[in-house]
Every structure is written in C-alpha cells, then in structure tokens.
Write a protein that binds this DNA or RNA. Structure first.
Lengths: 139, 139
DNA sequence: ATATATTTGTTATGTTATAACATAAATGCC
DNA sequence: GGCATTTATGTTATAACATAACAAATATAT
C-alpha cells in the first residue's frame, strides 16, 4: 500500500530526526512543503502509525519513525533516554509472555499495550557529567 | 505527612470514582469546594502522585486513586478496560525482572516505567454484546 | 513573634489534538 | 472514457490538557 505525498514527507522528517518530534514540531519542519495546519500532520501520522511505520510515544506526546522490523510481529517496548532523547525499540518474547500470563490470570483480554521506559542510555551514561549535546526531554 | 484540605478533597473524589478522571472532570466535581482553576487540581495531583496515593494514566490523560499497597514497592502495570473504564493495578515480580533484564542487556539505566494495557476486563467480556453500562474510554 | 516554607487563589497563556465542512484527487467499474 | 464512490486534502475553528507567573494567605519552626 503506497503512501501519499504528505504521508511520505512526514515519514521522511521523522526518519531524519534523532529524537521524537511532536506534531507541531513536524508541522514547522513541513511548512515549506505546504503544510499549514496540525490536522494535516495528525492525519498523516494516523496512517503511518496504523501501517506500523511510526510510533507514538505516550509519555512524550511525540512521534518516531519505526526502525525495527520486529515491531510488526510483536509487542514493542520503548527505552527513552531522558538525556539525549533517543529511542530504542525493544521486542522481547520473554516480556510478551510475561505480560500475557499476567493478564490471563485476571481474565483480561488485551488489545494494545504501551510500555515506555525512561532513563539514561549507555552513551549518555558513559559521558559522565559531560555537558549534554542533545535536547533534553521530559522525565 | 498529612494532606492539605485540597489534596484530601481531590483524593476523595478520585477514590469515589469508578474510572479514571481527567483534571478538568475533577475540577468540575470540585467547583463546589471552591476550586476555580485547573492549576489547583494539578497541584494537588502532583503531591498525591509523588506520595504514591494516585496514578496518572498516560494513555488516557487521566488520574486514579491508588488502590494497591504493592505499588509502593514495585513497578505497576495498569490493565485498562476500554468498555467500562475500570483500572486494575498489577504488580508482578516476573514482569519487573523481565524488564530489568531487557534494559540491562542494552546498558540502559531505567528511571520510571509506564505500562498500560488496554483491552476488555472479565466482567465486560462476560456481558457478551450486552449494552455497555459505563462510560467508554479511548482505545 | 517573627522569619521561612509551603500552599492557595487568580489570571493568563502554552501545548496537544479534534471537529466540521468544502474541495480535489485517486480508484473501481461498466 | 465517463461516472460513482471512496480517500485524501486544505481550511477554519475549537476542544482538551497543562503550565507560568505572581500576589496573598496559611502553616512551621526556632
């Protein structure tokens, strides 16, 4: 299923970003492409997310391009570095079955699951107390 | 550490609610108590959450009273019924260590973690195709 | 009692997301 | 190709969620 021009442009901006972008940040970067209102961004994001090409990060109200093929086939957890803003996508069978067991015990039928882990990535932890070189994000 | 009158009132309203409440819903229910602006609600919520007496649900932009003592001692996952809105708080060692292992392998130092599972609770699944008796919430 | 902290009330504004509706473009079908 | 149907787009407006800034009041501690 091919993307429209707008969807393509939003995806390209997300892909070229080092950290998640909010809808209004996307809008700004796309204003030169004729984007003039948030609706246009949200509509494209909606499609990208449904196709598994992008993710929404609930704890940041922001969006990233999907960089991990495995996301299509399993539950994705996100490791979010609060120092540099970078996102690591994690797919793990042990985690999935763990959660599966947990909800099964309560007779809960899961639909979609959000897992977001804030913290510090190895790179930033390595750069002990050096000044940060990238935008800080929410705790 | 005792709660102030405002904090107490917000907590009471959360405790008497069957489903999570947004800040503005809280404000409405507290307007008779002299609450007149969102800031007042957010301030009380902030304290309650820091004390572990309430939780914020990121996927709903809403708040619930904590009903599970174990939340103080471990990672809490939330099972959110999209039919009736009710929340189940889940604390599970297997899940915690699973996530711990996962991030350790990536040299990621976790701070706080958000886990929210949307789906259908046993009660609502039991009431097969009957009309819903409680407010629907976001997917 | 008085200096210090914290909490409160108030006004204003910032940030994120959706509604509603008219137009345009793509798609499928005969 | 023509025509109907669906899908995407542009535009304006507004809804929903959250914070900033500051003065006044209340609690706390010595």
């Amino acid at each position: 299923m091919p993307l429209t021009a707008n969807q393509q442009r939003v995806l390209e901006v997300l892909r070229s970003a080092e950290a998640p972008l909010g809808a209004y940040a996307l809008l700004e970067r796309l204003s030169s492409d004729g984007f003039s209102a948030p609706t246009q961004v949200y509509r494209a994001l909606d499609v990208l997310i449904r196709h598994g090409l992008a993710h929404r990060l609930e704890t940041l109200n922001a969006y990233v391009a999907c960089r991990l093929e495995a996301c299509r086939h399993g539950l994705t957890a996100f490791a979010i570095c609060d120092d540099c803003g970078r996102i690591d996508e994690l797919v793990d069978n042990a985690l999935s079955s763990c959660l599966g067991n947990l909800v099964e015990r309560r007779d809960f039928s899961p639909g979609s699951t959000t897992i977001e882990i804030h913290g510090t990535c190895s790179e930033c932890a390595g750069a002990l107390s050096e000044p940060t070189r990238h935008p800080k994000v929410k705790p």
